[in-house]
Amino acid sequence: MANIRSSAQTPWGKTIVDTLKSHIDERLKYPLAVPKEEAGHLHDYFCPVHNVFFEFDWNSPDKQYCSFCKKTWSSDRINWAWITIAQDRNKQFLIDCMYVYLATGDKKYARYMKDMLLDYADKYPHYKIHDKGRNTPEPANYSAKIYAQSLDEAGWFSDVCRAYSVVKPLLKKGEVEKIEKGLLKEGAGLLLKRGGGGNWQVWNNSGLAAIGVALNNDSIVKVAVEHTKVGYRQMMKTHVNRDG
């Protein structure tokens, strides 16, 4: 944190901070409310004719514009994918605010983080566990709540927990309890039940470790690192034994 504050005073550091501030200001032009519905699959956010990425618009959750077709498209899966991008951009907003707060000490950026995290804590428990088709599969090894995949959910928590750890010292007791109960512990409960393999489990462990650190809960971190089947150490042993 001290290095970030010091580096922010250099010419190149000021350029980075100014860039992050501009990203934050752009996000603030649109409502900051967290989506009420679950996200879909990012791979559905492409024009079905030209296979190009739609142009994301905060004001158009149900009509997605293709720059090649020069027209808008709409379907359940396409619009669910819009939510995926919205959640990604909210995550980036939190991280941008985190770095600007660390660099400048300006508490308005901490307030942005606090308000969005409290909003997520309100809504996360009510998101349904689902896959990319908004189904609830059994067994639900790869499904999630914010996103359609635990891979994406774990990546989201890996970043967002850092923002929470930075803002936590500024929060009231009730705010800490709400965020930890409604968001972090709920997320841990989901990821603890996800046992994939390879890249998926690496990310699941990352999300668990981040949540465990944010909660000061060594038992959660230990699962990510030491679990006899899917922990990092076991995965490393398996990799070494297989590849020599």
Rank of each mutant, 00 (worst) to 15 (best):
A2Q: 13
R5T: 14
Q9L: 13
T10L: 00
G13D: 12
K14Q: 15
T15C: 00
T15M: 08
I16E: 09
V17F: 09
L20K: 04
K21H: 01
S22R: 14
H23Y: 06
I24R: 04
E26R: 02
R27S: 11
R27V: 12
K29A: 07
A33H: 05
P35Q: 15
P35S: 13
E37G: 03
G40N: 08
G40P: 04
L42K: 05
H43G: 09
Y45L: 10
Y45A: 10
F46V: 15
C47A: 07
P48R: 00
V49F: 02
F54Y: 10
E55G: 07
E55P: 01
F56M: 08
W58S: 09
N59I: 01
S60E: 10
D62M: 05
F68N: 12
F68W: 01
C69E: 03
C69H: 06
K71T: 14
K71H: 12
T72P: 01
W73T: 14
S74G: 04
R77G: 06
I78W: 02
N79W: 03
W80F: 14
W80T: 08
A81R: 07
A81C: 14
W82Q: 07
A86D: 14
Q87W: 15
Q92R: 12
L94S: 09
I95N: 10
D96L: 00
C97G: 10
V100P: 13
L102C: 13
A103C: 10
A103T: 10
G105W: 07
D106P: 07
K107Y: 13
K108P: 15
Y112L: 15
M116P: 14
L117S: 07
A121D: 12
K123I: 07
Y124M: 05
Y124K: 05
H130L: 08
D131T: 05
K132G: 02
K132T: 05
G133W: 00
R134F: 03
N135A: 04
T136V: 02
A140C: 08
Y142C: 09
S143W: 02
A144G: 01
I146S: 07
Y147H: 11
A148I: 01
Q149M: 01
Q149L: 03
L151K: 07
D152K: 05
A154D: 08
G155C: 09
S158G: 12
D159A: 06
Y164A: 10
V166F: 03
V166L: 03
V167H: 08
P169Q: 12
P169L: 10
L171A: 08
K172Q: 13
K172A: 13
K173C: 11
I179W: 01
I179P: 15
L191H: 00
L192F: 01
K193M: 05
G195C: 14
G196R: 09
G197V: 11
G197A: 09
N199I: 00
W200P: 06
Q201A: 10
N204Y: 05
S206V: 04
L208D: 09
A210L: 04
G212R: 00
V213P: 10
A214Y: 14
N217Y: 02
N217I: 04
S219P: 15
S219Q: 08
I220R: 04
K222Y: 02
V223D: 00
V225I: 13
T228Q: 08
T228S: 06
K229M: 02
Y232S: 00
T238F: 13
T238G: 15
H239V: 14
V240F: 02
R242E: 08
G244L: 06
